[in-house]
Amino acid sequence: MAKQEKAADVIEKESEHHGDEAHKAPGTFVLTLILLVSFAVYYFANWKALADVWHVR
């Protein structure tokens, strides 16, 4: 608990000096990159599936 209490103070300080330093969220960035890659794979696989059906206009 003592450790967390201290941590809360750190957040408090941080929110007072907002934006003074760049926020580091490398894990989130990697997560979103995984999302983007899955998105692209699914999206283009669907175009491929569409290309295989009868022609229609």
Partner: peptide, 15 residues
């Protein structure tokens, strides 16, 4: 925006 947040917004916009 700055840092990776800025990079992500750029990538998302490109997509």
């Amino acid at each position: 925006p700055s840092g990776t947040e800025r990079a992500w917004i750029g990538l998302a916009l490109l997509w």
